[in-house]
Design a protein around this nucleic acid. Structure first.
Length: 473
RNA sequence: GUCCCCUUCGUCUAGAGGCCUAGGACAUUACCCUUUCACGGUAGUAACACGGGUUCGAAUCCCGUAGGGGACGCCA
């Protein structure tokens, strides 16, 4: 039997990290089995669903590289079918009309809470004839769930879980306004769409039992279920769309690569032995439900950073340059010139092993585009510009002037090494002030390569400017 | 409150009764490399929540305790 899975977000906000991982697992599972990964927008809550949310969620999935099969399905568009099923259930005697008003139910819950009882619908209209219905109340339709016995779920993550039916009340299928609830719609749609495996967050676990009763009432075969442990925030607290989880597009803006994000996310609650860094193709080849963990995981930015750094360092320079450009523009506060682009591309091999994110990468490249000014020189770099250092740099400039063309890193370096040797000093004594002069900082990629990328003119300009830098007070 | 679930280094995890003096990764510490910072390399610190049982033998099975989480909506 072909595998068909779905990701079913509700369009009431953005795509958060937990949803992204759920989508990823479904996607990996489908691709592994050569099955289908469907997308269904659970928009039956008309008050909270927005088209903007749908757009944001789709963009988030696209950024993550999760392509879905066919068109995204709107659950709301299928409401006629849901209503028909609800009525069929009533006809079968498996559901009934309930005339209890919202206020009445609220009072019931308040009373139960006061008495320390579980909050549950008490079935007051379960066997009451419609002739007793108050004329002013529009009824809802509720499932007639079994009162006794128990319901067992064979979850692919949690194992066999049994709940007494006394814990499950008669859930609403159709609201008073005639619209279907999520509980009804999700079962009908999963059935109609031929979903074979429902892989979703653990917060749906208790729903599964109620939904199982609905499958039974319709004589439908339920799909396999796999409930994923939730993701917690770095502090161990709840981490969801409603509780502080960042949106996927935030990670994009923070300078994370989608492939790094995928790799990080797949390891959060799933493992393949000791494997840590692997391609998406490898993940597809390896992914299975058996590798899923059972306990919640905390989101750890340090590990994400590490992975992203590794992916950044591996990324092809020209692609990386394209990805980084918007971050450069932001960091530099101006559009790039052709010279900027050329320099950045040449600098990239040395730059990309030094940054964890595109934001940091752009920041580390700032000196290429913006010459240090009095205001931007780092204090430690200025400390390097002692009178002796300035004298040495001045001498170096003269010798640099005499260097035969072309201007290369190795020639500049050789000159520096010779100068240091002649005076019996370490290379750093010469190289550090040079670094400070070119970058305004004590930290940079290898400085002779930097000098080559700048070219002779720019090097001379910056060194000369550094020689006239006023002393620190 | 009721029901359900979870518990291995700080974090993510390996572990399906003997392969475990518990492995890997991130973080962290030290050293090496070195023109700075990274990268890389080497070494180190660090965990089976607790208590009972089953067994020749338990991180692995069972029971209990504690802690954490989830659900309990005419939300999804």
């Amino acid at each position: 039997m072909a595998v068909i899975v779905r990701f079913a977000p509700s369009p009431t906000g953005f795509l958060h990290i937990g949803g992204a991982r759920t989508a990823l697992f479904n996607w990996l599972f489908a691709r592994h089995h050569g099955g289908q990964f469907l997308l269904r927008i659970e928009d039956t809550d008309r008050a909270r669903s927005t088209p903007e949310s749908v757009k944001t969620i789709l963009e988030g999935l696209t950024w993550l590289g999760l392509d879905w099969d066919g068109e995204a399905v709107s659950q709301f568009a299928r409401r006629e079918r849901h209503v028909a099923v609800a009525h069929e259930l009533v006809a079968r005697g498996a559901a009934y009309r309930c005339y209890a008003s919202p206020a009445e139910l609220e009072a019931l819950r308040a009373e139960q809470t006061a008495k320390g009882l579980p909050q549950r619908y008490d079935g007051r209209w379960r066997d009451r004839p419609a002739s007793e219905a108050p004329p002013s109340v529009a009824p809802v339709i509720r499932l007639k769930a079994p009162l006794t016995g128990e319901t067992t779920l064979h979850d692919r993550v949690g194992g066999t879980i049994t709940v007494p039916n006394s814990q499950l009340d008669d859930m609403v299928l159709l609201r008073a306004d005639g619209t279907p609830t999520y509980m009804l719609a999700v079962v009908v749609d999963d059935h109609d769409m031929g979903i074979t495996h429902v892989i979703r967050g653990d917060d749906h676990l208790t729903n599964a039992f109620r939904q199982l009763n609905l499958y039974t009432a319709m004589d439908w075969t339920p799909p396999m279920f796999a409930h994923l442990p939730l993701i917690h925030g770095p502090d161990g607290a709840k981490f969801s769309k409603r509780h502080g989880s960042p949106a996927v597009h935030d990670y994009a803006a923070l300078g994370y690569l989608p492939e790094a994000m995928r790799n990080y996310l797949v390891r959060l609650g799933w493992a393949h032995g000791d494997d840590e860094i692997f391609s998406t193709d490898q993940a597809i080849a390896w992914f299975n439900l058996e590798g899923l963990g059972v306990s919640p995981a905390r989101f750890d930015f340090a590990k994400l950073n590490h992975l992203n750094a590794r992916y950044l360092a591996q990324t092809d320079d020209s692609r990386l340059a394209t990805l980084a450009e918007p971050f450069l523009v932001k960091a530099w506060g101006r559009d790039l010139t052709d010279v900027d682009r050329t320099r950045f591309l040449r600098a990239l091999p040395d730059l990309k092993t030094r940054s964890a994110t595109l934001v940091a990468l752009a920041e580390s490249a700032r000196f290429y585009g913006i010459a240090p000014t009095l205001a931007t020189w780092e204090p430690k770099a200025r400390d390097l510009m002692t009178p002796e250092a300035r004298t040495r740099l001045g001498t170096l400039l003269t010798r640099l002037e005499a260097l035969p063309e072309p201007w290369t890193a190795s020639k500049v370096e050789a000159l520096f090494r010779t100068s240091a040797e002649e005076q019996g000093l370490k290379l750093g004594v010469f190289a550090q002030p040079f670094r400070a002069a070119l970058t305004g900082s004590t930290v940079s990629p290898p400085i002779f390569t930097v000098a080559e990328i700048f070219g002779k003119n720019e090097v001379f300009e910056r060194v000369k400017a550094s020689l006239s830098l006023p002393d620190l007070a």
